[in-house]
Design a protein around this nucleic acid. Structure first.
Lengths: 210, 210
DNA sequence: GACTATAATGAATGCTCGTTCAGTTTGTTG
DNA sequence: CAACAAACTGAACGAGCATTCATTATAGTC
């Protein structure tokens, strides 16, 4: 049981995963071939099957790895003090750095969502990803309520889910525009949810039929 | 130039598009075969090619048709009076009925987004879809500002894009959870953007390092 | 009721791709 | 260094697929 062997094996496995991600991003899961992945990794096709049971397995593991990277990025700087806005801005900064500045991540996520709608196994993976993001948002908002910064009757769950949905929507927007919106814009939009950028609705004279 | 021929041809074309949508939803663009579409439409494979140049062409046309359906649904009840909240609620109702109550629409959109990240032609289609939704939101918000219902220094563009992103995020959420969130929940979240559900941030004693 | 343009057919074609496995190379150990 | 196992190789296989096209069926016209 040589230790070096094990480390080597793990390294090769990671290099295949890295290669897979590159190829999946540029071609999509389906048009990317196992031969493509092997070439990108500097290996032969056969080797892939030493490390992964099948192409589907490779796809699943590659999504799993991406989720881990994103979660790490989001959580990096959250546990710290400050106002709700400051904490939220920091969380968004970490998320932004991984998701929108790292090239190819939006395309990769879009692929994952497409597959998720048909394959329960993949669906579970991306659902867990969302839950993690929602949890981060909930913690921040909950603290805001506890500190009296936010109104006590805030529906924390709804607000946290709104933040997560908004962020995912921004990912789609970046795909469509071909470029990431500036980080500031995203912060501003999320903060719309948290503050009086939009004034309270004031009923005026017009209360018509409907 | 027999008139009947033309009508018949159009009808067949539409039935192929309908069949394509059904198959694309259940299998995804790639795993769906032209034979599948033909069988679903009650035709032979060859016939598909009387109406569409290629499978890619069929995919493109099918996305185009779906976009039209969605836009029609969103615009149906918007042009009417009431408060900003009422108008927004009506627009969301139309959007919800088409997007989340119609089975398969989220899956179809997810497929489109995945392809959009790699194919400029498809990207243009889905980008136009977003622009239409943003425009509807902007019109509603703009009217709110003009009526004095919303604060004059509201960044209408940012807010409208936030609404659109939020809605798209909800589509992804519905894919992941395997069920649509209730329409009320979505309204509540969008309205978070429009009102004081969350109280203004109040600076309290703690103003630390940062 | 024949005639003709149009539409529909589906077997055949050529290609791509996931997966396998018999054989080769590489690295470790005694 | 010899012996062995782990890791790697890539040609070959077989299944599946988009697309074509020679042929057949059909609907509209005179």
């Amino acid at each position: 049981m040589p230790r070096i062997r094990i480390e080597r094996k793990e390294a090769t496995r990671l290099s295949i995963l890295r290669a897979a991600r590159t190829v999946f991003v540029s071609k999509g899961f389906h048009e990317a071939t196992t031969h493509d992945v092997a070439r990108e990794a500097g290996l032969s096709v056969g080797s892939i099957y030493t490390y992964f049971r099948s192409k589907d397995d490779l796809i699943r593991e590659s999504i799993l790895a991406a989720n881990k990277d994103e979660t790490d990025a989001v959580l990096r700087d959250v546990r710290s003090s400050g106002t709700v806005r400051e904490k939220m801005a920091r969380a968004i900064a970490g998320w932004y750095a991984y998701t929108l500045e790292e090239p190819g991540v939006p395309a990769f996520l879009a692929e994952a969502w497409a597959v998720a709608s048909r394959k329960p196994l993949i669906r579970d993976l991306v659902a867990r990803r969302r839950e993690r993001i929602v949890t981060v948002a909930m913690v921040i908002l909950q603290e805001g309520v506890a500190d009296g910064e936010l109104t006590p009757n805030l529906d924390v769950d709804a607000a946290a889910r709104a933040v997560a949905a908004l962020l995912d929507g921004v990912i789609l927007e970046s795909i469509e525009s071909g470029a990431s919106p500036p980080q500031m814009d995203i912060e501003r939009r999320v903060l719309l949810l948290l503050g009086p950028e939009i004034a309270p609705v004031v009923r005026r004279g017009n209360d018509p039929s409907a």
